[in-house]
Design a binder for these strands. Structure first.
Lengths: 193, 193
DNA sequence: AAAAACCCTTGACTTTTGTCAATGAAACAG
DNA sequence: CTGTTTCATTGACAAAAGTCAAGGGTTTTT
């Protein structure tokens, strides 16, 4: 099932069916059980993962074994440790499944080959990363300039689907709070209504 | 003087001198006085600015008229409100000069034309944005998971040149602190030594 | 050269957020 | 079905960061 991948691809860069077939050759399907890793810190990130189904997260673990959520990805989105993927240096992130998931992997060799042979793939990647960059800049701006309650509201408004599927303590981490603080923020917001 | 621009370009994507001449045609030089705006919130961002000389910053202003520094750029770096530039929506950032500056502008029409006609430009842009994305992800990770003093140390280590050139209260804002807090953090760090 | 604007520091105090610990509910696994 | 793990909440307290206000040193402007 590659439907979602090519739907998203075509939204960015329209493909002929021949081009689509050609690119399909480079995609590796992979199923993941809940809690299964697709990448562990220290390993080299070997692929970009497109999520056809399910939910994943990227996170780090600090000295005090606190987890910090870097990114969520659900159907239609892409997740990777880009730095590790592009440089072949050890990854600083862990990526695992929050639900059983079906992925399409673009391995490094597939990526390089596609970049070389398929200009539309280069454009797709450029647009993908540009979108990711803009989203990240927004997130950082919120994080620097907004108080906890607004960060949370903005998160639920921007990603209502994710907000309902992932545990609350991970959302807390994503917006830079402890679980306890988020719990209290939510309570206060409920009281104010 | 386009030296720095092409030096950086060639580091990413080697150019023949003909290609270089062709691309040069699309660059618009611009000088900026200290405090002069190259972009104001609400206007549409008309160009990507490469800094040949001087220093600029991008920032937002919130309801309480607090400034929040989004980005610095000095010689060899690029600055823009990418979202506004790419979508032609009104900018959410202000960008102005911290020192007298010399820029090379890539206007939207130049950008589109170059994307269409010069594959090496597309590659350059892809690599540029990828680098920016990775840097931003690192910054966000620090911001979420590190205490104030380590954020500051990491900033000065990562950008020693910027740390020495820009006012301290702007660095405070960049790492998500008030000027007072940064001042105290610095004092504590000096005492510990 | 004087006035104004900017910048950093410091003190006193407030607010926000984190930490530790305990509890109960729900989800999960054998 | 039952023991275990995960998750959210709450309380009491501690730590971190913000706010307000003042002072003095620079730099900039006129």
């Amino acid at each position: 099932m590659n439907e979602l991948f090519f739907q998203k691809f075509n939204e960015k860069v329209p493909l002929t069916s021949e081009e689509q077939e050609q690119i399909k050759e480079y995609l590796t399907p992979k199923k993941l059980r809940k809690r299964q890793y697709i990448l562990q810190e220290g390993d080299v990130c070997k692929a970009i993962s497109f999520v056809e189904k399910g939910a994943l997260r990227a996170y780090t673990v600090d000295e005090n074994s606190n987890e910090h959520i870097i990114q969520f990805a659900i159907e239609g989105w892409t997740i990777s440790d880009l730095f590790s993927f592009l440089t072949a240096e050890p990854a600083t992130y862990n990526i695992d499944a929050l639900e059983d998931a079906e992925l399409l992997l673009i391995t490094r060799t597939a990526h390089e080959e596609l970049l070389r042979t398929q200009p539309k793939y280069e454009k797709y990647i450029r647009l993908l990363i540009t979108g990711a960059y803009i989203a990240l800049q927004r997130r950082l701006t919120s994080n620097i300039s907004l108080p906890a309650d607004e960060r949370y509201t903005r998160f639920t408004e921007t990603y209502p689907d994710i907000a309902q599927r992932v545990p609350q303590h991970m959302i807390a981490s994503y917006i830079g709070l402890t679980p306890e603080t988020l719990s209290r923020v939510r309570k206060k917001m409920a009281d104010r209504k």
